[in-house]
Design a protein around this nucleic acid. Structure first.
Lengths: 366, 366
DNA sequence: TATAATGGTGCAAACGTGTGCATAAGGCGG
DNA sequence: CCGCCTTATGCACACGTTTGCACCATTATA
């Protein structure tokens, strides 16, 4: 019932030549006379021939395929990276295997091995922290590896490369802006499941405060527990943790990412704390969501799609034998309305006294 | 410098057996004595052998790979589908090629051919409308095809299957709810680049109104132009179009999706029309965003991730030779705060007279 | 005219794996 | 002791493609 798949042999038979001639003709080799080349190409077209990439890969030892590992796709940050990477891959005639690790190191290890089995030509990782076993597994694949938003380690293998945004600098940018608005009591809302970048952003936060001669007490720094690794519960986790910051008496909070900031926003709404009048908020990433909430989020912009593109381009360059340099992009601050001067006026929600905040906080967490 | 890739031949040599024995031993064949089988497995493990999926595919004529085509990943609706599909694929030992079509039929055709070349075992399409050429190209791949959210055509090839949510029913649900709140002048805000589903939701809208004896004039139905196919501009496009609905004097709007509803929300905010007091809003999809805007969106929930899972499961079942039936899931209504009774009180934004609305509308669009 | 150079094509091997079939070794009944 | 059955293994081919090399025919050169 199925019309049989046709191969170059079938075409060779139909054209009365050998299959090698067909192969060369379709590859546009100049070894073949123009006449037969065109004849064969026309024939192939007409017979509906579609080359078998599997067989080609086996022979040429290149699959024109790259593996992409992300922690989540539902997280718009990674979604944009995937889009950017896919886009430049397709343009270069490559295909991409998508893999999501759910922030599970074991799963990630298994995914890397699968990619190895499939003989991908390159790997892009936009995922969790890598342990020694991961590094070894990756090195064994003997293929270019590009990490997104992970600073390279000094004893990484030579074929490890990276493209990252300056987390530390971005955080400084945001916190210095809050300082410039007059805030002195500034909190940090972190994400426990984003080890490296969370650490970097926390550092940037500390550096900015230190620059203003401020030493934040522990209570100003709250971190969402790491257990919720799906990346989908970011908002809810932040909403739960946020009241502790209000209770600590901060007038502004710099949040690990926009999801966390939205969580803070929801918490404020529930507690009837006005934003930015009662508490200023700054996020990170500049996902679409940041523009749509009320008030729109002041946040640190990352060129996420561009990072995906560049990561893939690095893989392509490495495959082409070019030398590439690790890149770290500078984020920019997008000023919207979620951060204002401390205690600014005309606030539809009543400003709460410290006691009231504490009271409501206890109400929420019980 | 590179340690050479090791194949079953290397293992065979090291073990003093033939490569066929190794192949069988690693496959766990009972033809091989338990002793040598274990010896070979241990040896393979120790030598760091990783099977070559390419060679396996060539031989077994199965790549254990499925192609997934979506219009966008930045759109959270599709992102969730991808996650669901990837999840069940991995669990079944399959890998997925991700492809984004950007709603471009030509690009989509090219993607299908690429998947054909790569000899995927199945294809899932969550993408734009398919023309005849697409159908033919898909049929030529001779592989199970599952469409997400596209009703099957009666003259589709036999290997075409689908899983969809009842767009029409979902739209009815939402509009009937608006009617039940007391609205009579209800508009529809459509998306021109989502042909089929837009049509179905429009039908549902009409059916619900007809059930209440209402015949909507043309001005109540506005559609965002199709040109913006990226899926990323949905909100902005809706924001631009929305004022025309207010100008038409509707008291409630059912929107094609949540992005459109958010666009409407932004437009209302700009025009200082209170939601839901000045205009009620209902969306579709129930993406995360819907919960985070103010007011939270009343919307039609689709089990997006579940749809991705089921689509992939259908492919797996088809590959296993099982019979599968097309599925259409029933959406549910999630009631939040963006829809209320017409002209309800306690609105922080002033209610506008029809004249004022028109005036502001002209102001915005000039 | 003989020889070399040139251009076009075919032969066969290779990539790494799976598998039908033959075969060898061992046990057992006749 | 011979033949047969069972068990374990090897041989060889196949999957569809690319490519080095040999070969043939034609033309240019001496």
């Amino acid at each position: 019932m199925h019309p049989p798949r046709i191969s170059i042999k079938d075409i060779a038979h139909a054209a009365g030549v050998s299959h090698s001639t067909v192969s060369r003709a379709l590859a546009g080799s100049s070894l073949i006379s123009a006449e037969t080349r065109e004849r064969i190409q026309a024939l192939a077209e007409q017979m509906g021939y579609i080359p078998d990439a599997v067989a080609q890969s086996l022979q040429t030892r290149s699959t024109r395929t790259v593996g992409l590992v992300v922690t989540s796709i539902a997280d718009p940050f990674f979604a944009a990276i995937v889009e950017g990477a896919e886009e430049t891959a397709i343009a270069a005639g490559m295909s991409v295997f998508i893999n999501v690790s759910h922030n599970d190191p074991e799963a990630e290890l298994a995914l890397i091995e699968t990619l190895h089995r499939r003989r991908v030509d390159g790997i892009i990782l936009a995922a969790s922290r890598l342990g020694m076993r991961h590094t070894q597994a990756l090195a064994r694949v003997q293929v270019p590896v590009v990490m997104v938003n992970r600073q390279p380690d000094e004893h990484d293998p030579a074929d490890f490369h990276s493209i990252a945004v300056d987390d530390r600098g971005g955080a400084r940018l945001a916190v210095e802006y809050l300082l410039s608005l007059g805030h002195r009591r500034i909190g940090y809302l972190g994400m426990g499941n984003r080890f490296e970048s969370n650490r970097s952003r926390l550092e940037g936060y500390r550096a900015a405060l230190a620059g203003a001669g401020i030493q934040p007490p522990d209570a100003w720094i709250q971190t969402c527990p790491a257990e919720d690794a799906s990346g989908r519960g970011d908002v809810a986790a932040a909403e739960t943790v946020f009241p502790a910051l209000l209770a600590a008496g901060v007038t502004a909070v710099f949040c690990y990412n926009d999801q966390a900031a939205v969580g803070g926003l929801l918490a404020c709404r529930k507690l009837r704390v006005g934003v930015p009048e009662g508490c200023s908020l700054a996020g990170f990433d500049d996902i679409d969501l940041a523009r749509y909430v009320e008030p729109p989020l002041t946040t640190v912009h990352q060129p996420r799609r561009e990072m995906g593109r560049q990561a893939m381009q690095m893989v392509l360059d490495l495959l082409a034998g070019k030398r590439v340099e690790n890149r770290v992009l500078s984020p920019t601050l997008v000023i919207r309305s979620s951060a204002g001067k401390p205690g600014e006026a005309n606030c539809p929600l009543p400003l709460l006294s410290a006691e009231e905040k504490t009271f409501r906080f206890m109400e929420m967490t019980e």
